[in-house]
Design a protein around this nucleic acid. Structure first.
Lengths: 144, 144
DNA sequence: CTTACTGCAAAGGATTTGCAGACTA
DNA sequence: TAGTCTGCAAATCCTTTGCAGTAAG
């Protein structure tokens, strides 16, 4: 599932212990994670101290700015989620009941042309989220 | 542009002065607005006092709960935006430079079937945002 | 009259920032 | 060594909540 075989820390970003750890977590992760998620894993893995949540945010900011990480706010969006850009971008279906994420087989826009109101817009990226109910929640739940 | 000719305050929601004002603002608006936007217009229109931001959030919560308003977090998402559901749902292209919103002609998924990883997901809704550059920002900006 | 809604102020959570010390190149 | 990065704590911003008073049906 992980496609991080040849994934190395970006040369253009200054290496520090903290950033390397954050990079490792992101590169091992296949789903979007929040800054707090990352922080919790850090203090889990690397001992309880020696990490600040602000460092996580700052590192994520750098990674995002350089295009290595994409930030998004899934579902109502109380907090931001981050994921490493592995080259291929992903979309998710999000279960409204259990909040599980299910990746789409492929991007529905690969071969689709999208038109804006006046066609005077150059599209460089997009974000798509599907909402609904996963198998488990559909079976047990008749209150849909 | 406004399609609120026959738009009236929902019968199932208790009428109050405040909710009517909030409803009015939402129904006159053609683009998503934040709770703070609404609050500012309220104190602009209706005098400076007599309105609390919490009332705005609570009213929006009710409207959303009953399905009259949809809430979303556009673009990185520092705050939530709300818009009245006029029957037809809308998607936007968002300029990365000036943050202008441009509505799509039509929903790209109207006739498209989307497949999830295992097809065990019932899709009830979706959210799509396009990013790029509008005409103005493209012309002046060569730093794209 | 009863219940629900409001304003106020305080709390909450996520994210950012200032600053002095620590680390990287 | 110079400049950047870090931890800490405080600050911000958006949003929610508790409570006592007020308004709606």
């Amino acid at each position: 599932m992980k496609n991080c075989e040849e994934l190395t820390f970006p040369k253009e970003i200054k290496r520090t212990k903290q950033r390397e750890e954050i990079f490792r977590i992101l590169s091992e992760e296949t789903e979007p994670v929040s800054a707090v998620d990352i922080y919790n894993r850090l203090i889990q893995t690397c001992g309880n101290s020696n990490f600040a949540i602000s460092t996580v945010y700052r590192a994520l900011g750098i990674f995002e700015e350089k295009g290595y990480v994409s930030k998004s706010t899934l579902m109502g969006g109380d907090m931001a989620y981050y994921e490493w850009n592995f080259g291929t971008h992903k979309h998710y279906a999000i279960c409204l009941k259990c909040h599980k994420l299910i990746a789409l087989k492929k991007c529905p826009f690969e071969h689709t042309k999208i038109e804006t109101e006046n066609d005077d817009f150059v599209i460089t990226g997009h974000k798509l989220e599907l909402y609904g109910y996963c198998k488990e929640c559909r079976v047990e739940g008749e209150d849909i």
